[in-house]
Write a protein that binds this DNA or RNA. Sequence first.
DNA 1: TGAAATGTTGGGGCG
DNA 2: ACGCCCCAACATTTC
Length: 475
Amino acid sequence: MSDIAIHWFRQDLRLSDNPALAKAVEQGTLLPVYILDDDNAGPDAMGGASRWWLHEALGVLNDQLRGHLRLYKGDARTIIPQLAAHYGARVVSWTRCYEPWRMARDKAIKDQFDAQDCGTIRLNGSLLWEPWAIQKQDGTPYKVFTPFFRKGCLQAPPPAAPMEAPDDIAFAKPQEDDGAISLGELSLLPAVAWHKQLAPHWDIGEAGAQAALKRFLDDGLNGYKSGRDVPSQPHVSRLSPYLHWGHISPNQIWHALDDLEDDAIPDQDVDHFRSELAWREFSYSLLYYNPDLTKEPLQPKFAGFEWQDDPEMLSAWQKGRTGIPIVDAGMRELWKTGYMHNRVRMIVASFLIKNLHTDWREGEAWFWDTLVDADLANNAASWQWVAGCGADAAPYFRIFNPVLQAEKFDADGQYIRHYVPELSKLPNKYLFKPWVAPKDILTEAGVRLGETYPAPIIDLKASREAALDAYKALS
DNA sequence: TGAAATGTTGGGGCG
DNA sequence: ACGCCCCAACATTTC
């Protein structure tokens, strides 16, 4: 047996605060690998934006590893044991994942190794607390967020202090015939170069994650609690893709908040940002205890709910051509940047579900394909939350009015004007609802409804009432 | 992590 | 001066 330790990178694409990687480095010479495993992912295989991000991220990680990252494509259940045998590895390490398909796969691989000499190292590096660590007194999982956060998270042992990156990694000598392929051969980039417009908005990788954290702590956190609702303001962290890919660990963020030296930042801002990290934990808890979360409503009474299936409506929503400015602005931000501000996510989701009466799984699928932070747990839990069929869900009658939401949270119209430039000359009075503007105002602003910008595809008032009736029938 | 309908109050205009 | 109406502004209830 050699002294080789294989670290299998998955959603932990960083060197610092990576306990499993650190352990592997301690135990031998490192063979760092990544496997594109669409075989096991099945219907949960990555979407387009994720694949682009991963392509870039693997390039950056390979540079960090001084060109030693080995890439493979296929079924990890066979590739990992083959690699271990091929190299005569002493140990294989990985950071735990919590998606049902990954947990099943990883357990099968672990079981194979348990019957052999090769050891495994499996550690948490992606969550503040592992899903099974946060439970109610009676041993059942929390179903409501606030006690999950206050009683569960805040009274649990605090997250471990982050570790430095291992210095001076000794790499194993790669063998040419081990099945490794090039980054290009992973074929992660889409045939149509849609991803190119995403690139200017992101600094992918571990350094980019740390820069985003610093930017947020310096300029965004102060005023977070209320500023986070305003999409034109820099008061959101934009850390979600970095967390999803493990370019930064939640422990690093949590402890950075502990270590803040700026006394001027109100406690309520820091506390609220911590609660957002805890929402991520809550989503993972929900998925862990409800493996069908991505496909089945948590509340059984929604099982037979009759959603409308209108491909044209869905397409208009996806393209940002609904005729409702704040909705279109959000959907276009998503298409252009791979991201959407959280407040706007709630607005567009509410519109799809409660005005267009579309199955929440359609929205879930679109976000899965287009978000650079697409995350199985967060995506499923959040769509169920908006649809009202999830845990701790919004009451069914809580329906957003996208006009009022825009008037409240984009009061100066900056966000809408940026993403819906064909409306930018409209005065604020009509920017949020151009269909009520007098003809001469529209003409003066260069807007021709139905030509330069769509007329609304749905009547907000009537569709709201229809949703209320349908939901009321359930309760 | 709503919105709309309904109810209440109080100031000002006006006969 | 007084009563009446109107209607913001705010509060409460309902979906």
